[in-house]
Simulated assay, not measured.
Amino acid sequence: MTRTLAIANQKGGVAKTTTTASVGAALAEKDVSVLVVDLDPQGSLTFSLGHDPDQLSKSVHDVLIGAEDIADVLLDTEDDVTLLPATIDLAGAEALLLMRPGREYALKRALAEVAQDYDVIIIDCPPSLGVLTLNGLTAADQVVVPLQCETLAHRGVGQLLRTVTEVQQITNPNLEMVGAVATLFDARTTHSRDVLADVTDRYSIPVLAPPIPRTVRFAEASASGSSVMHGRKNKGATAYRELADNLWESWNGADVRTYELEVS
């Protein structure tokens, strides 16, 4: 059975794209067949995986509005994951979809055509709670929230959780909130731990193990057109491999491991 995971947070700069690319690449290293979906009009995931959005003639935008079959838009990447790319055209998809009945189901219908070819589908949602994010949440089995370990980073998490609840009530009753992924984590400071404790207490969502440390390797990887899994061994790649293992094991029947459990 294909597992579909949405990576969502309406706040920008919280490592949604890095998490999508890195977890996807880590799973691919385990010989898991992975499709990653770029739902952000900025095309950051597309660029990070080696494709220039400005040079693409077809994208997820064309799939969502019914102008192209999804199979004709998919691209290969150096990380051995398949990519459904995004271009700036996607910014216009919101307005076009708003006029269509069943607009929240456009991505779910498209993915159903190729889902049998993949073990895991990971959706990189845009930094908003508009129609595109609703499409991502409606198409997903589970949602994970990347969260910066910095002051005020959790502003808006409550709104996202309310949106997830509404999606569960209306378009996707089977959607499951897995928890938060702590990003830009600095284990040397009490501040990072305090932010995670506040999120856990305030919103009652678990923080998945392990936290993802702050490292310049993420920026370097994005600029090179491949995930942080390529190149020299680094702590960021190690953490994302552990996170991918955690998710994969939970999909195969184990309990998902949480950060609080490991430090207790």
Rank of each mutant, 00 (worst) to 15 (best):
M177F: 09
F218M: 12
T183A: 06
E104N: 04
L45T: 02
L132D: 11
D40H: 08
M177S: 12
R3S: 10
G156S: 08
R257F: 01
T258S: 11
A15Y: 08
V32S: 06
V195G: 13
T46C: 02
D31K: 10
E113M: 07
G179K: 05
D31H: 14
T200P: 01
S57I: 09
G102N: 15
H230T: 11
T238I: 13
V120E: 13
L27P: 05
W248E: 14
S22P: 03
K30G: 00
D80Y: 10
R214T: 11
G102K: 10
T190L: 15
L90K: 11
P213R: 12
T238V: 13
T151L: 13
C125F: 02
L49F: 03
E68V: 00
L160P: 12
A221Q: 10
Y203R: 07
T77Q: 06
H154P: 00
V36M: 01
D72M: 03
D31V: 00
Q55A: 15
L208I: 06
A67V: 06
S250R: 14
L45N: 02
R217K: 15
A67K: 14
I121F: 06
V228Q: 09
I123W: 04
P127Y: 12
R217I: 02
D40V: 02
L196E: 10
V199I: 14
K108V: 00
H191F: 15
E68F: 00
R202M: 11
M177L: 15
I121G: 05
R109L: 07
M229K: 05
G130I: 07
G253I: 06
D38K: 02
T20Q: 04
F218C: 06
E150P: 13
D72P: 02
L147W: 06
A95Q: 13
E29S: 05
E29H: 03
S33D: 14
V36W: 03
S44F: 00
A244K: 07
L132Q: 08
R232K: 14
A219K: 12
I212L: 12
T18C: 12
L75H: 05
L261C: 00
S227E: 12
I122K: 04
G158Y: 04
V37I: 11
V167A: 04
L160D: 05
T189D: 13
C149V: 09
E68D: 13
D38Y: 07
V131C: 03
L96I: 08
A26Y: 04
P213F: 02
A239G: 07
P126Q: 10
G231N: 05
A15S: 14
V164P: 04
D54V: 07
A71N: 08
D141T: 02
S128C: 07
I205L: 13
K11Y: 09
